[in-house]
Computed example of a mutant assay.
Amino acid sequence: MSRLVSLTFGAIALSLGATDACAQSGNVGAAVGGYSFEDAAKEHPDTKNFHSADGHLTFAVVTQSAGNGFFDPLYVGATVAGNIIGAEVLLLGSEAPNQDVAREIEILNQIVQDPTIDGIIMTTPQVGAYDDIVRAAAANGIPVATTNSFDGTILNRSSISHTGQDASAAAIAGEALAKCLMERGIESGSIVLPSSTAQGNIEVNDRVTSAFNAIVKTLNDAGKLGAFKVDAGPQNTGIDTNPNDPVAGVVTLFESRGDIVGAFGGDALFTPAIAKASAQLGMTGKICAYGFDLGPAQLDALRSGDLTGVIGQQPFLQGFWPVMQLYLQIDRGISAANLDTRAQLVTRETVGNIGKRYEN
């Protein structure tokens, strides 16, 4: 009886397998237009000789602060994409650990005149600073893609692809900060959002505003807003703090308020500064400290507990996709295919999952 049952099940399995095979017989071998997918999937014969006509594509990636480590996974992503399509990718940027737009533009002005360059990928943290670069690139026949920071007013914006995270993602950290206070039973105090509006980085300004609004909304919805003082400066874009010595600036800010229970930093400059200020003042674990960008300093601060949570922007994608976008623009005529890299909130509990395969 046992053997008969086994044989019966085997026959049913064979019958089901035959049915599945028949269901997969409707292959699509050619497009409705008549061409084959195999031929259409091939690279155009002129692609490798685009612009420089040297038999291979060369793309330049230029950032405003290559010296702080945040852009490392971005450069890795760009390299991976270049390897896939067989393009050379030049990894360039300001050597400074903090934002240095002047140096970035200096590099871009050299690159845009280089006859071997077939495409430019650049960060655009300062609104209005890159129009001449875009104009010169267009005149020289070089396509441009922007990544990381977004300038909505840049010349030919609707024709230029952008890869990055919408600033509204900072609301995730703002909500988490407010919930952290409630979960810890903190009933009152000051929540500060230090920044440097003087840098003219509208992306960071918008992040601070989004985090501020989320903190206020979450506390208000819980009926607790009246007990807290939430301060993001007069325009809700950040309490202006010295960018040349951000740690000292944050320490002074914390000491001046005397009742700090929460803080948020909108970039890779002020997030580590909040962590260091908390450690110096013995506030580690006593305040809800959140920030933006998962650079090495932020990861260390999460592990030590000096930061409670940090928003990551998936920088690997911010390097990978712009290279692929420029390739598609050259080979397929596809342009302005934007990518929102979304956000991930990383905490001390989950920081061990970050950094795998070199992506912060």
Rank of each mutant, 00 (worst) to 15 (best):
N360F: 15
K179E: 14
D46Q: 11
I274E: 00
I117P: 03
G67M: 00
T79D: 07
I154E: 01
F59H: 04
I172R: 03
I133Y: 11
A60T: 08
G262D: 11
Q99H: 10
D293M: 00
L193K: 05
N236A: 14
S158I: 09
D166P: 14
K356I: 14
C22L: 08
Q325M: 11
G26P: 01
D132T: 15
G305H: 06
A279P: 09
S256M: 11
P194I: 06
A169M: 15
G185N: 09
F59T: 09
F9A: 15
A171H: 05
G26N: 11
G258C: 04
Q113R: 15
N205D: 15
Y290M: 10
A268E: 10
S52M: 09
D340S: 02
S188T: 07
T123E: 06
N205M: 10
T19M: 11
P322E: 01
D100H: 05
S304H: 06
T147F: 04
G265A: 02
L108T: 06
R348W: 02
Q318C: 03
P246W: 08
A18T: 08
E359D: 15
V76F: 08
A40F: 12
I311Y: 02
V230K: 06
L299P: 01
Q313Y: 06
G223L: 02
T63Q: 09
A178K: 04
L299V: 10
D151Q: 09
S190Q: 08
A96G: 10
S304Q: 07
A211H: 12
A268W: 04
Q24K: 14
I133Q: 01
A137G: 05
K276Y: 12
P73H: 08
P296Y: 07
E203Q: 15
T47V: 05
V323F: 06
A21K: 12
G93K: 12
A232N: 00
A87L: 01
A214Y: 10
L219P: 00
A23C: 15
T341C: 04
L181T: 05
D46N: 05
V250C: 02
R135D: 05
Q325I: 02
T8D: 11
P315M: 01
V261K: 13
A263L: 08
T347Q: 02
A178F: 01
T163C: 10
A21I: 09
A87D: 03
I107Q: 04
A173E: 03
G309P: 01
I172S: 04
N68Q: 13
Q329A: 14
G29A: 12
A138S: 13
I287N: 00
T197A: 12
N98K: 14
M182T: 04
S168W: 09
A41C: 04
Q126G: 06
G128I: 06
A18Q: 02
G333M: 09
S188N: 04
A23T: 14
L299N: 00
V216A: 07
A248P: 12
A173M: 05
V346S: 10
V127R: 10
P194W: 09
L4R: 15
